Simulated assay, not measured.
Amino acid sequence: MTAGPLDPGAARPAPFGERLAAAMVAFGPLCAGIDPHPGLLAAWGLPDDASGLRSFALTVVDALGGQVAALKPQSALFERHGSAGMAVLEEVIAAARSAHTLTIVDAKRGDIGSTMTGYAEAFLREGSPLAGDALTVSPYLGFGSLQPAIDIAAANGRGLFVLCLTSNPEGAQVQHARTASGETVAAQIARQAGAVNAAELADRGGSAAGASVPSMGSVGLVVGATIGDAARTTGVDLSAVRGPLLAPGVGAQGAGSAELAQVFGSARGQVLASSSRGVLAAGPDGRALLAAARRAADDAAQALQG
C-alpha cells in the first residue's frame, strides 16, 4: 500500500486517497503518531538525543508496521535533534515503507513559489529520502500557494492534509474569519480542497476502495474532533471535500459518537483518527504498543459508527 522503493525510475504508486481508503478498510480508521517528546523519551528510559530518538521511533515502527492504517512522524521532534534527527526521520520513513505501512509526515509546511516547490520536492518527490506517502501543509499564505505541493504530490501518487479547522483556541482567529465575499477562511480551504479531489476522482473514474469507505481524493483536511459545531457555523461542508479527514481527539482521546456526529456528520466515513500519546504511553514494550493501537482503532471505529 505504500510508495515502493525510492527509485526515481520506479512506477508511480496508486493515488494516495485510494491507498489510504484501502488501508482504513484493512486496519481500521487509526493513524498512530510517532511523537518523540522529551517526556516520552524519559518515560521510556531513553536519552533525549539522536540515539534515544532512533530507538523510540523504530520501536514504534517495528510494533505497529503492517498493523495500522498509517503512521505519522512529527517532523519537528526529529528536527530538534539537527541533522542526526533528520537522518532518523529518513530511516523511519524507509522502515515504514518496508513494513508496507503508509506514512504521513507531519511537517505543516507552507510557503510560496520556489520555496514551496523546495518543500514539496523534499517531502513528496519520488527519490527523496524524506518522502512519505503524505504531508501536512499550512494554507495560510493562500490555498493557491500550495499548488506546487498539489502538483508534485499528484505526479508522485502522494497526498496532502491541509490544516482547516484545528482544535487549538488560537486557530479560530484565522480559520473562522470571513473573506471579502463573506465566506469563512475554513470554508474556502475546504471548498478548494474539494475541487482538487473532484478533478482527481473524475480522472480516475471515482473508483471505490471498499464498501465501508467512500471514494476519496488525495487532498485531505486536518479537522479536530473536539471542535463542536465549528464546521456548521463556519459553513464547511466536509462531505463535499471527498477526501480524508485527519482528526485528533477521537474515541478515548475525548470525542465519542455524539461529538463526532456533531463535528463530521455524514462525513464520518472519511475520518482517520490520529492518536499519538494515547498509544505511545504504552511503550516501550512492542506488544503493549500494538495492544494500545488496536484498542484505539476499535474505539475510533465504534465512535465513528455512532
Rank of each mutant, 00 (worst) to 15 (best):
E126M: 15
R191Q: 12
F143M: 02
M86H: 13
A94I: 12
A187E: 11
S83K: 04
D106P: 06
E91R: 11
V88H: 09
I93G: 12
T136R: 05
A120G: 14
L160A: 13
T184N: 09
A172T: 01
L165V: 03
L165Y: 07
S145H: 10
L130S: 10
A94N: 14
R158H: 02
L163G: 07
G182R: 04
N168C: 09
Y119T: 01
I112K: 03
I112W: 03
C164N: 08
I104E: 01
T103W: 03
L77E: 00
G132K: 13
V137R: 04
V162Y: 09
I104M: 00
V162G: 00
A87V: 07
Q188G: 10
F161Y: 05
N197H: 02
H100Q: 14
A99L: 10
I189H: 00
T166C: 08
D111W: 08
A193F: 02
A180S: 11
S181A: 15
S114H: 07
G82I: 01
L77V: 00
P148L: 09
H81T: 08
S75M: 11
V162P: 00
A84R: 07
V105M: 00
F143H: 11
E91A: 10
P148W: 09
T115L: 00
G182P: 02
P139M: 15
T184P: 13
V137G: 07
V137S: 07
S128A: 07
G194L: 08
A172M: 00
R80Y: 09
I112F: 06
L102H: 05
G85F: 12
L163T: 06
G85W: 03
A154R: 15
F143S: 13
R109I: 07
A76W: 03
S98F: 10
A95N: 11
A99K: 03
T179P: 09
D151F: 05
C164V: 10
I152P: 15
Q188K: 07
S167R: 04
A172Q: 08
V92P: 14
G110K: 08
G118Q: 09
A99P: 09
A177I: 01
Q173N: 11
V105E: 10
F123T: 10
N168T: 10
G194R: 12
A76S: 13
A107I: 08
S167F: 04
G194E: 12
T136A: 13
A198S: 12
L165H: 00
Q173S: 13
L130P: 03
H176P: 01
R125K: 12
Y140N: 08
V162K: 06
G142T: 06
D106L: 06
G144A: 15
A172E: 08
T166R: 09
D151Y: 07
S128P: 09
L124K: 08
L141K: 11
L135P: 05
H100G: 08
K108P: 11
A131K: 09
P148Q: 10
V105Q: 02
A180P: 12
H100D: 14
E79R: 08
A186P: 13
S181R: 11
Q74N: 01
L102I: 06
H81I: 03
L77W: 02
Q147W: 03
